[in-house]
Design a protein around this nucleic acid. Structure first.
Lengths: 250, 250
DNA sequence: CGTTTAATTGAGGAAAGTCAAGTGAAGTGG
DNA sequence: CCACTTCACTTGACTTTCCTCAATTAAACG
């Protein structure tokens, strides 16, 4: 039920805008970066794996022997900080690529937020393909640029001072991602629970709860249920995002 | 005076660990990812540019026609958030690569923190090289992975709750980067001013000032002058990083 | 239908933000 | 070389927000 499944699954799929695409061509559009041929070739070296909700896909520090490409479901990448608490670094959706390593070991842990289906591509095989297929490499570069920008947005969320702003920015991110995946955007779907959100935006669980309350009390947002919210007052939603006091609007 | 200049400048230089390096080989080491040959080839299409301290190298949203590779000096990448204030996304040092684009436009602005010397590589030419040189592409992938991890660390800094922790994490990052560049690490050099630091770690200018004061009052740190600090009590410095209350140590 | 997990809400206290004033250092020009 | 201007940084007082801890309520699961 998670994500729309493609009509025919050809193989691994990377979806991202080309960072250097000429400005004349379709802007702001995400493209399938792999040709059917490439996907088919990758499919040969990939296997399909499944994970139950909450399952750990891999753990930080483990030897990295494969990368993953999500077919359906949502995962979270998190890392155990120097201290005790964790920080969720990213949520991973359909088409996302993860498992990139550092010194041969995974740099973060990944856990399934919903049931996951994914391609598992052994690194050795992938690397071999790299040396034979320059286009594939380039597409991975494009994807990485995309992830880098995503990380930049995350930084923005973390940097906002007020929890309400964090939440708005977070919801906007989700909405954009949803749009990129061609899913309906009249409502925002929250696959993760409140505590995941709080760990992602850098706030306490209670603060998130209160922020939802504030936004819905002001009629900016409607919380249909735990997993579905709808933007009512988009005018208030969009620009306010960042640090403008919402209080002034009453 | 900024950074040590290489004996002979062959051309652009990318320094990063190979993300998938076998565990048997030198771990944790950064490598020059480009062969002399590659650097020479890149040098042909690159030009050397200079910027004064404080100069804007490019601005967010401008058409991206070149990437840069720092020879000496320090720059900062920042972005104007949805609202009014800016967020510094990264500090860029010797060997760093920046100017990667989104939809043909720069995703952030970059300004020189100290005087800068850099290679400027036109994208068109670079892309052409990509299609002929798979190894080069792979090295860019490695560098991007490295930047991604750096962004992850930044997220950690932003996510810590107490300013003192943010500052410690930040200083640790600088120290590691310094070590990677084979510079002396008995003292940490801060090329940027306090306000840059505050924008990077997500705190107010005053808070940073107070955090320095706190650390130096506790004898953990010695602030020799605005740009140079020395870790005195490393035992307190290392583990405490994250959110453990420093107060408990008194 | 009871049990477990997720989310909300309340109260108190600590930390950081803002605003504004004061201090120190660096750089300029005479 | 020194006085002056300017900019960077520090410090203080006050306000606000968020975190912590704990108690409830609501929803999911068997």
């Amino acid at each position: 039920m998670a994500n729309a499944s493609p009509r025919s699954v050809h193989g691994p799929s990377i979806l991202a805008p080309d960072p250097w695409a000429p400005r004349t061509s379709a802007q702001g559009k995400v493209h399938q970066l792999l040709s059917d041929e490439e996907r088919a070739r990758l499919a040969v070296i990939a296997s399909i794996v499944r994970f139950k909700k909450g399952a750990e896909i891999y753990r930080e520090g483990e030897p990295a022997d494969a990368v993953f490409n999500i077919i359906s479901g949502v995962a979270k990448a998190y890392t155990h900080g120097p201290g005790k608490d964790e920080l969720i670094g990213a949520f991973l959706f359909h088409h996302d690529l993860f498992g990139l390593a550092q010194e041969g070991r995974y740099a973060s842990s990944v856990k399934a937020v919903t049931p996951i289906t994914a391609y598992r591509i052994p690194i050795a095989a992938l690397r071999k393909r790299f040396s034979m297929d320059a286009a594939l490499e380039f597409h991975v570069i494009a994807k990485l640029c995309h992830e880098l920008r995503q990380a930049q947005r995350h930084a923005f969320v973390l940097a906002s001072k007020h929890t309400v702003s964090k939440l708005i920015l977070f919801l906007q991110m989700l909405e954009h991602l949803q749009a990129d995946r061609n899913e309906p955007t009249n409502e925002i779907y929250l696959p993760m629970d409140r505590s995941d959100i709080s760990e992602y935006v850098g706030a306490s669980l209670s603060a998130i709860s209160r922020a939802f309350r504030t936004l819905s009390a002001k009629g900016i947002l409607k919380v249909r249920n735990r997993r579905h919210v709808k933007i009512i007052d988009r005018a208030a939603f969009e620009p306010i995002s960042h640090d403008v006091r919402l209080e002034e609007q009453c």
